[in-house]
């Protein structure tokens, strides 16, 4: 069944017809040609599709587009954080690049969460920008190339 939604994607307002079944990820990739978010598993198990939805990092493959009429979506293409891009490049925090847009959005969201004082499973007292905090908080973004060491270093550098 068709529905029409209007969402802001990377600062640009877009109106698009979707099937009620269309996920936010597929709306972006198939209907709006916004291909920065990637489809790695389509079931919330890899993090490649991570975007910022109304300011928070979420998995766009598990969000129905129709349920997010009026939302603001930021993808890696529109992410206003060149510092993260710089530290990712410096630390060679990616190889094939397929998980990378999701890693970047997740990193940006996670740094905001840390700044807000949110705890994680490894927090003891108040959270800090330690390697173990970053590792735990980024555990939802799989990287099969194995760039984790660089990813952690890049986020730590960008977050300072």
């Amino acid at each position: 069944m068709e529905a029409t939604i209007t969402i802001t994607v990377d600062g640009r307002q877009r109106t698009v017809a979707v099937d009620t079944r269309t996920t936010l990820l597929d709306a972006l990739r198939d209907r709006l040609a916004v291909t920065a978010p990637k489809k790695g598993c389509d079931h919330g198990q890899c993090g490649s599709c991570t975007v910022l939805l109304d300011g928070r990092r979420v998995l766009s493959c598990l969000a129905l587009a129709v349920a997010h009429d009026g939302a603001e979506v930021v993808t890696a293409a529109g992410l206003d954080n060149d510092r993260l891009r710089e530290t990712f490049l410096d630390n060679d925090a990616f190889q094939c690049g397929y998980c990378t847009p999701g890693q970047l959005c997740s990193a940006a969201g996670m740094l905001d969460e840390l700044k807000a004082g949110w705890p994680s499973a490894v927090t003891d007292g108040e959270p800090t920008l330690s390697a173990s905090e970053i590792r735990e908080r980024m555990a939802g973004n799989l990287c099969r190339c194995g760039a984790y060491v660089g990813i952690v270093a890049a986020i730590q550098e960008a977050g300072r």
Partner: peptide, 21 residues
């Protein structure tokens, strides 16, 4: 040398198979 394909990958603009126009 830093990866020359870095900027495209870090903006999500490097086209993978599904993403060609």
């Amino acid at each position: 040398l830093p990866r020359r394909d870095g900027p495209a990958k870090l903006h999500g603009t490097a086209p993978y198979a599904y993403e060609h126009d």
